[in-house]
């Protein structure tokens, strides 16, 4: 090549084009994929899903709330509704919109695909819990019911999605909505978190950051205007009513509130021993099974033994074996009753 400058420029341009085409999320390929998505069918299906959700939770809904939920104008929504009515999927009763039986079973099929896919992402892949809902919103329009059923069968037909929502059965059955928003719980009541709403995203992100997840016990401490204080598995949390209403709980009238708080395994210092309380439900699938295989189950005791030369991971002794666990995993394991281990002296 006679002109290296020319060649270098050409080379850089070629590398630039490759990056532009293949860059994840923002590259040409990813964009093309997104454009294919926003079709009429997707909007129709999303509307049905929204209507079903309202009916399931007993909330009245109208054109405007539906338009707001899908982020389109009321005019567009009116056209969509007319279309759905022509297809025999919805019926109008005054201002109220209701699903017909056909419409309901269509919506349940979508919900089933959505929740199975969320469960699949949570249990079988490494996709982060923040991304489950968004990915399932795309897949629910692409995956056929048959494919979803095959995936469900492979996972042993799960009954719940990772947020705690029941997955409709193949016959389109779903248990009646039970539970109340956390904001409606009275002082002194004990309940279990059964669901954390994954929409809107910023609320879900905030609640996950607080470490709240389905399966936790909550104990209402104080309800005030604009501020709700409660203990989640013994640890005190404060939320505004808006955030608290995204959490659905099931009252447990007979349960005793958990008095003692928990700490995270990552806080355990070398030569300290503690009792395992549990594993966060955001640690799922393969990872969770692996930890449980090692004996990380409620009730067993665990000792921090040695820190690696770079500080992370830390080796923990459990059931007579030393297991290295990374810090971000140890953050998802809950412990209490931390005691100093007197190992050196006794040996």
């Amino acid at each position: 090549m006679e002109q290296p400058v020319m060649a270098l420029v050409l080379g850089l341009v070629a590398v630039g084009i490759l990056i532009w085409v293949f860059w994840p999320k923002k590259g040409l390929l990813a964009r093309l994929g997104k454009v294919r998505m926003s079709s009429q069918r997707v909007l129709l299906e999303d509307t049905l899903k929204y209507l079903f959700d309202c009916e399931y939770k007993g909330i009245a809904c109208n054109l405007n709330s539906a338009a707001g939920n899908l982020n389109i104008s009321a005019d567009q929504m009116a056209k969509l509704m007319a279309h759905l009515k022509d297809m025999g999927l919805v019926a109008f009763e005054g201002h109220n919109i209701q699903l017909t039986d056909t419409g309901k079973s269509y919506a349940l099929r979508i919900v089933r695909v959505h929740r199975i896919w969320e469960r699949f992402l949570a249990d079988e892949t490494g996709v982060q819990h923040m991304d489950w809902h968004g990915e399932a919103d795309i897949q629910e329009h692409q995956l056929s019911l048959d494919e979803a059923n095959r995936i469900a069968a492979r996972m042993g037909n799960p009954a719940f999605d990772p947020h705690g929502d029941p997955i409709p059965s193949t016959e389109g059955e779903i248990p009646p909505f039970s539970g109340r928003p956390l904001s409606s719980l009275k002082e002194g009541e004990v309940a279990q978190i059964v669901h954390i709403e994954d929409e809107p995203h910023y609320i879900f992100e905030q609640l996950s950051a607080l470490g709240l997840y389905p399966g936790m016990q909550v104990y209402q401490l104080d309800v005030q205007q604009g501020k709700i204080t409660f203990a989640a598995d013994g640890n005190e949390c404060v939320l505004t009513p808006l955030f608290a209403s995204a959490i659905t709980v099931q009252p447990l009238p007979k349960a005793e509130p958990i008095q003692e708080g928990y700490q995270r395994l990552s806080e355990l210092q070398p030569d300290e021993t503690a009792n395992i309380v549990g594993i966060s439900s955001y640690c799922r699938g393969l990872q969770r099974r692996r930890l449980m295989d090692f004996g990380i189950v409620p009730g067993n005791s665990i000792t921090a033994e040695l820190r690696s030369a770079s500080g992370d991971p830390v080796g923990y002794r459990i059931l007579g074996t030393t297991i290295a666990i990374r810090k971000d995993q140890a953050n998802l394991i809950f412990i209490n009753n931390i005691k100093k281990e007197h190992h050196e002296q006794s040996a």
Binding site: P24, T125, G126, L286, Q287, T321, I323, I325, Q329
Partner: peptide, 17 residues
């Protein structure tokens, strides 16, 4: 791990025998 393998299942475990 940030592109093609992003969604692959991942666990960490290391036994110190």
């Amino acid at each position: 791990s940030r592109s093609v393998l992003k969604g692959e299942a991942s666990t960490f475990s290391l036994e110190l025998p």
